[in-house]
């Protein structure tokens, strides 16, 4: 509490050992604190993410009242709630009569700034996308963030044909069922969303067709 303008460490230059020891100790303590904070907050964060994911399922699939979690393992779709690391999971949604409505498929890919994670609904009977929700993105505020803030862009995914593949076109130039109006000023972000869905489609649609041949029938 002497309020000296200069810090004094008590005479002479400290040896290198002291310097190394100080930094090591600081690093060690810092590491411990960070691990502690990480471990404490992790359950809340993962629980929140899982809850948001499930809530999103109801937003991207119309009139769904219950859902099941499907995991792709050894070339087969398995229904399981048991979460494992590296699971490739999707959700199947059912209406109140227990009939399959469609699938909610998560996708991720590079956006304008960072990875965009999203979830979209797919109706196998109509081969259409039935809705899209952005789960995580760091797109430019005011421009790229319109991929979830701009209602007209989001609603464009409510009924969108997936064949041959989804295309983002200039605003107002939409002519076909597989085209969506890109956001003016956020073309890269719009195209990123479309590319993520197309890639997930290429990965999942063959699997779904192989697993559920009866669904497309009626």
């Amino acid at each position: 509490m002497n309020g000296l303008p200069e810090v004094t460490t008590g005479g002479g230059e400290p040896g290198s050992l002291r310097l190394v020891a100080t930094l090591s100790l600081a690093g060690l303590l810092s590491g411990l604190i960070i691990v502690l904070a990480f471990e404490t907050t992790l359950p809340t964060i993962t629980a929140y993410k899982a809850r948001m994911l499930r809530e999103a399922v109801f937003n991207v699939l119309p009139s769904v009242t219950s859902l099941k979690r499907l995991v792709y393992r050894n070339g087969k779709l398995v229904e399981t709630e048991d979460e494992q690391k590296g699971d490739q999971a999707i959700f199947s949604g059912y209406d109140q009569n227990g009939r399959l409505v469609g699938y909610a498929i998560p996708g991720a890919g590079p956006g304008f700034q960072d990875t965009i994670r999203l979830l979209y609904g797919y109706l196998p009977a109509e081969r259409k996308v039935s809705g899209m929700e952005i789960l995580e993105s760091r797109e430019t505020p005011g421009l790229g963030d319109k991929i979830y803030k701009d209602e007209s862009f989001v609603s464009g995914f409510r009924s969108l044909a997936v064949d041959p593949e989804i295309r983002a076109v200039k605003k107002g130039k939409r002519t076909a069922a597989n085209e969506i109006d890109a956001i003016t000023g956020a073309t890269i972000s719009s195209k990123a969303v479309v590319r993520i869905i197309n890639e997930a489609n290429r990965q999942w649609l063959p699997r779904l067709e192989a697993a559920q041949p009866t669904v497309t029938g009626d």
């Binding site: 810090v7 460490t9 400290p14 100080t22 930094l23 600081a26 604190i33 960070i34 904070a37 404490t40």
Partner: peptide, 24 residues
């Protein structure tokens, strides 16, 4: 904190608090 390594130590301290804030 020895004068010679003060800046690095400050950065370690600041970074720790920032990471904790980020998680919280």
């Amino acid at each position: 904190i020895p004068r010679q390594v003060r800046i690095s130590t400050y950065i370690i301290i600041i970074a720790t608090f920032v990471t904790v804030t980020d998680f919280t």
